[in-house]
Design a protein around this nucleic acid. Sequence first.
DNA 1: GTGAAAGCGCTAACAC
DNA 2: GTGTTAGCGCTTTCAC
Lengths: 341, 341
Amino acid sequence: MTTLVEVARHAGVTAATVSNVLRGRGKVGEQTRQRVLAAVQALGYQPNLMARALVEGKPATLALIVSSIANPFYPEFALAVEQAARQAGYFLLVCNTNDDPVQERAYLDAVGGALAQGVIVMHGDFVVPQALAALRQRGVPVVLCMWEQPDQPPALPCVAVDFRQAGVLAAEHLLALGHRRIGVVMASEPSGNHRWRCAGFVDTLARAGVALPPAQLRHGHDSIDDGRNAAHSLLAATPGLTALFATNDLPAIGALQAAAELGLEVPRDLSVIGITDIQLSRQMRPALSTVAVPTAEAARLAVEMLLAEISARPDGAPPMAVTAPPRLVVRASTGRPVSPA
Amino acid sequence: MTTLVEVARHAGVTAATVSNVLRGRGKVGEQTRQRVLAAVQALGYQPNLMARALVEGKPATLALIVSSIANPFYPEFALAVEQAARQAGYFLLVCNTNDDPVQERAYLDAVGGALAQGVIVMHGDFVVPQALAALRQRGVPVVLCMWEQPDQPPALPCVAVDFRQAGVLAAEHLLALGHRRIGVVMASEPSGNHRWRCAGFVDTLARAGVALPPAQLRHGHDSIDDGRNAAHSLLAATPGLTALFATNDLPAIGALQAAAELGLEVPRDLSVIGITDIQLSRQMRPALSTVAVPTAEAARLAVEMLLAEISARPDGAPPMAVTAPPRLVVRASTGRPVSPA
DNA sequence: GTGAAAGCGCTAACAC
DNA sequence: GTGTTAGCGCTTTCAC
């Protein structure tokens, strides 16, 4: 590993000068510049970013904490965050907690211990806002992303998406098509972070005079398998259902598969709609109708906000940014019921 | 950000002592220990990992370079690498090049510039072995993972999987079921990194006296969409095909969808088989038959090898590890053809 | 323009 | 047992 000093020796100058030509600071004579550059070339010098970070008091990295990299939503989101981060000259450390609070703590500590200049944490059932607040108290810039409830900000900088509205849109779509007997697959605990989308959906139904008996609701995890099981259970319990709403795309895709297994044709016999619009949704056959969430925008906002937190220590209430509202994306999995109720 | 010195002052000792109690090195009096620990607690001290890394000459991170985090295989693999890395006490920096050589170089340089102690690079079409060799020359530990051809090692430490054998297994399975008119979807350039799996497949067919005319081969990228298009094209060109082999699961899933769109029942009218066994394959309906590749083992071996490279500078030929052979996983997408040729 | 010197936060010898 | 001393590789005043 070539060091600055070696380059300096090779060029017959001092380390400071080499640093100056490399960073473009200070005044350096043109010939000295050339000589230094030549030495850098010759020795194949690469600056030690860690040393630089140490003296500058900050590493050129941001960290993203996700709960499960296996859930296809997170890689998509991580990609968007990474691009925004790179644009700002940062590298992205992707930390996967695997839904394990211990791992999460370990990452948070390490990151707060200066592996990164700041952290973006994805909001999920597992997130402990207190831990994040404590981290922030210690002076580590933190932003919570994908907060689901814009009208009730946490005590933390965050970017929120109006997920309640996503539920509303899904309900309106199904209602407009003429569905009245609808099943709901909730991909979190009843009191978990999907409750707002669920509330938006259920309330909209209620306002239209459509009741949702408990037998028409299931919950589980955010996965294809849980969605499939929930759909089977729902369809068995209430054979007359004409539509299924899932609070996320993964379980909606599971519902699509359950329909196929039962010989139900989608959307003739059963309509299915999800929330998020992950890539896989477009690629399924039939393609999934869903309520798209502005993922890339959320990622951009999160990075922006984190950078702001980094440069200026907070004063006043933690900021909150809200993305553009979700939008309905009608594809092939929803249609009119054969026999409207 | 509390520092070691502040803790030391607070405890009425010197920085070295604090360091000693924290790292468990050296001899420290029990009461001093207690006092120091109390100070650490009181001040909420977190060690600056960067400073530690600097003095120790190495950061506690490993980097993984992948070409596209959006391809579901990579997150699965990254997860396995991360677990192995964590076990060894390292954090994982996941770098996504987005199939862009410029980004790849940038990451390689930064990483070589000491963001991480070593790099695992996934083998793909985009990888330039020369760049990696140069990096290694500069003293950065590198291992290439998922090399496809065990009998022809690159000039780099690598972990290889016998992908040729994967192609062989797929062919044997289809042949055993009675298929003779088979289409192939190759998910890379003809001379790209899927050529060995393809060769294994084609050769096995040939040995069984089954020819593969050019009209029965398509290639494209590693994606569901390309797989679907290729399948449509193949089925249109040669209507009598009873089975499709794709060199990866993603295009195989696309083929499954093409079959559904054409009203073909799988596996009665068409058998489909892929390679890798990504999670999605199990979750499709019908579930995809495939040749499973020991991903987790490859990840473990890669980390192990990288750690070895880090601790002992290489002498002699670069090491190569070969994983256990791929194994056939028969699920619901393959069966006997209705009318064997 | 260029160099000398100090110091980022930490660890590792070695002395007391 | 505990403190002292040096230095990791770099940036950054501030003299010259």
